[in-house]
């Protein structure tokens, strides 16, 4: 029996969540299909006027990504809470924040990353230019981890509450507004002919800030929810 180091503990938590998700694939696929469906509904509903579609594309993709990431938040801690694994995680002789960071990373890989990968295909439905598609992917790549992190905080706070699923959306969605604004702003600026860098840089700043604070805050929220 050897002592386990912090990075390998982190990897283990991520690996465990990925294995569990692979054995229960429906959960991952629902998020992805939801995203694809919501985005595809817009061209059907508003008609095929190319100029309008091109203009609304960044907003539609980003809002759909936001809603899709809300969908899977309820599952982030609840399964571990119900079968007692979360109690064991709180007894880990390392900081609970790192456990939470591992859970967040796994959650993003399962619910954020697939959206990033499929977004360019959906963007083509809206006749987005190549450059705009690239910026869309980059903005989602920076922005979706922030959604997972803010979501983790909401999920931790509402753990064990009845109707927590709706409550978590009400709690988290307003907090995600800045991410939405800068994410869509970056893509829209390409169409407007200006550099997307300022918006992307601000998104990056959000990512760093949430990386610093949300695991710790979520860990505290978990401790409160477990009492």
């Amino acid at each position: 029996m050897n002592k386990i180091s912090l990075p390998s503990m982190l990897l283990l938590v991520i690996q465990r969540d990925l294995i569990l998700a692979m054995r229960k694939r429906a959960d991952v696929l629902t998020t992805l299909f939801f995203f694809v469906l919501v985005v595809s509904l817009f061209p059907l509903a508003v008609g095929s006027e190319m100029d309008m579609l091109r203009k609304m594309a960044p907003g539609v993709v980003w809002v759909a990504a936001l809603l899709a990431s809300m969908l899977s938040l309820g599952r982030m801690f609840s399964a571990d809470y119900q079968d007692g694994t979360l109690e064991q995680m709180m007894l880990v002789p390392q900081s609970l924040s790192f456990m939470v960071l591992g859970k967040i990373a796994a959650h993003w890989m399962l619910s954020g990353l697939p959206l990033v990968l499929i977004a360019p295909v959906l963007g083509m439905q809206f006749d987005m230019s190549g450059e705009a598609l690239l910026v869309l992917v980059v903005s989602l790549l920076i922005g979706t981890p922030v959604l997972s992190m803010i979501g983790a905080f909401g999920a931790a706070l509402t753990l064990g509450l009845r109707g927590g699923g709706v409550l978590v959306s009400l709690l988290v969605l307003p907090l995600c507004v800045p991410v939405l604004i800068f994410g869509t702003g970056a893509v829209a600026s390409v169409a407007g002919g200006v550099s997307a860098m300022p918006n992307l840089a601000l998104l990056g700043a959000f990512l760093l800030m949430s990386l610093l604070f949300t695991p710790w805050v979520s860990a505290q929220a978990l401790r409160i929810s477990m009492e």
Partner: peptide, 29 residues
């Protein structure tokens, strides 16, 4: 080491995988 009412094991994993994970969570491989 704490053993609660809930078993803290995952239905989808095998007994061996479960044991390996709970051991890692207690800080040892």
């Amino acid at each position: 080491v704490y053993l609660g009412h809930a078993n803290a094991i995952k239905d989808e994993l095998s007994a061996l995988e479960n044991l390996r994970i709970s051991s890692a969570l207690s800080g040892c491989t």
